[in-house]
Write a protein that binds this DNA or RNA. Structure first.
Length: 194
DNA sequence: CTCTGGATTGAC
DNA sequence: TCAATCCAGAGG
């Protein structure tokens, strides 16, 4: 398995409606070329954060933290929650602050590196949550603003998912009723638990 | 269920 | 300066 030669998802992909991006990103491959080797996995769970959405970090305007959300599409917005980093893909044109949170990944390549980073060898716990997958993939604040189209951390073409489930989002206190979370029913084993 | 514990934000 | 808040995770 070597996903580093798969075609990368281009800039236009991230210019689509954010809910469409959140759906279509399921099944694609998150890939990180590190000095120690390639780490890759299939995205199986996502959430959309959109305009007019109270749970969007950018809902109350631009701050130092959320400024990359206002930048061009196809870049990584990485922020810390509690003690964990979370990875988002910025969508929409420059000036519009929307993003897709990547919540879970099925481990595919570089699993020994994931085990090393996560300090667990329980496969289904390696990447089944937003904080777990960033640790497994060695993603942190230095990736904030990095380009997911041209960089070492990128998203490449995977497979199309037929059995997509749409539900409400996890862990938020506002906008709880909005059905903006998506996961692949075929990959339930790798999806985070509520 | 509880405990852990980093960083941002906006109030004072 | 400071405390509330935040898109968790681990362990029991």
């Amino acid at each position: 398995m070597d996903f580093s030669t798969n075609p990368v998802l281009n800039r236009e992909f991230y210019l689509q409606d954010t809910v469409v991006v959140a759906k279509e990103i399921i099944g694609q491959i998150l890939l990180h070329e590190t000095a120690d080797g390639i780490i890759a996995g299939r995205i199986v769970e996502s959430e959309a954060y959109i305009n007019g959405d109270p749970a969007n970090h950018a809902a109350r305007g631009m701050t130092m933290r959320n400024r990359v959300m206002f930048g061009p599409p196809g870049h990584a917005y990485v922020y810390m929650i509690h003690t964990h980093w979370c990875l988002n893909a910025v969508t929409q044109p420059d000036g519009v602050a929307e993003a897709v949170l990547i919540r879970a990944v099925e481990p595919l390549e570089g699993i020994h590196l994931m085990i090393q980073s996560r300090r667990t060898d329980v496969f289904r716990n390696l990447c089944s949550g937003p904080g777990k997958l960033t640790k497994a993939f060695r993603i942190d604040r230095k990736h904030n603003g990095s380009d997911l189209v041209t960089g070492h951390l990128r998203i490449v073409e995977g497979q199309r998912i037929r059995n997509l489930v749409q539900t409400t989002r996890i862990g938020i206190s506002q906008g709880v009723e909005l059905p903006l979370r998506f996961y692949s029913a075929e990959h339930l084993k790798w999806v985070s638990k509520r």
